[in-house]
Design a protein around this nucleic acid. Sequence first.
DNA 1: CTATAAATATGACTTTGGTCATGTTTAATA
DNA 2: TATTAAACATGACCAAAGTCATATTTATAG
Lengths: 143, 143
Amino acid sequence: MLSNSSKYALKAVLYLAVNSTENHKILVKTLSSRINVPKAYLSKILQELSKHNLVSSTKGPKGGFYLAEENREVRLVQIVNTIDGDNRLTSCLLSLNQCNADYPCPLHDLAGKAKSNFLKNLEETTVQDLVFDIASGKSFLPL
Amino acid sequence: MLSNSSKYALKAVLYLAVNSTENHKILVKTLSSRINVPKAYLSKILQELSKHNLVSSTKGPKGGFYLAEENREVRLVQIVNTIDGDNRLTSCLLSLNQCNADYPCPLHDLAGKAKSNFLKNLEETTVQDLVFDIASGKSFLPL
DNA sequence: CTATAAATATGACTTTGGTCATGTTTAATA
DNA sequence: TATTAAACATGACCAAAGTCATATTTATAG
Ligand code: FES
Ligand code: FES
């Protein structure tokens, strides 16, 4: 459903969302040990996210990664699509084509509703929304 | 969500369900061209399914693959689990642990219902059920 | 009983996703 | 302005999924 890489990306963004601000940046090294993702690999993922303006960063001493206000409005689907590519979530379960409700495969009804529901949620939900859930104790950040 | 291999497995089983009987067996070669899956690869998948008694086969001249009556009662989840392993469908979206509703990750509610719904459907639905849908024009076999 | 047609078993090859290491650029600070 | 601490860029390496080829076993039919 989601690749390992986008799981890592989501964990990293959520950790930053909860723990960082513009004047409290976080080092890759720290992030790595906190969310339990290999440092070098996490680095590559963060750079990709940074290039697409989904997270913020500054170089040099006192630098690090953080989430600016704008980054908190990012929708989850942007993160997933940036890492996994666009059609991982929209392809049909049986063929490799787009899923098409007018010409549904036998599994379409089994998963179709679930799948489109999930996709819709990813499109509608922002990083900030998830932070609210965490803050209110509705969900927990796995480390 | 599903690996390529299990997509192929499902397509193959469905094709057999619709087009084969005990005295109308189908060659790998034929199946391969009909469902558009590389012959050698399909072979390997069918052998795996056969070993787990999810499809039937006989060797030698006039041999081939087919679905016996018992095979039509197979549940989709058996096919997927045989090919993909057991926990591809039950793992959490963020961590690598089992998904746990009592300690939900931030994505759990987003996808959790969808995911468990899909899983439940896979567990409840038999091959035969899908054949009914195809026969009644509710769904279509992608080739 | 022999020849042949099929699945089956095994393993090698290829591609892709994931992992890591090394060097380069940028910014702070002394 | 020199030093240094950090992200950034690039590419090599490894493991797993997917792909294919070859040899073996089994059953039919003549
Ligand atoms: S057509 Fe196959 S999942 Fe929608
Ligand atoms: S706990 Fe993460 S999906 Fe359920």
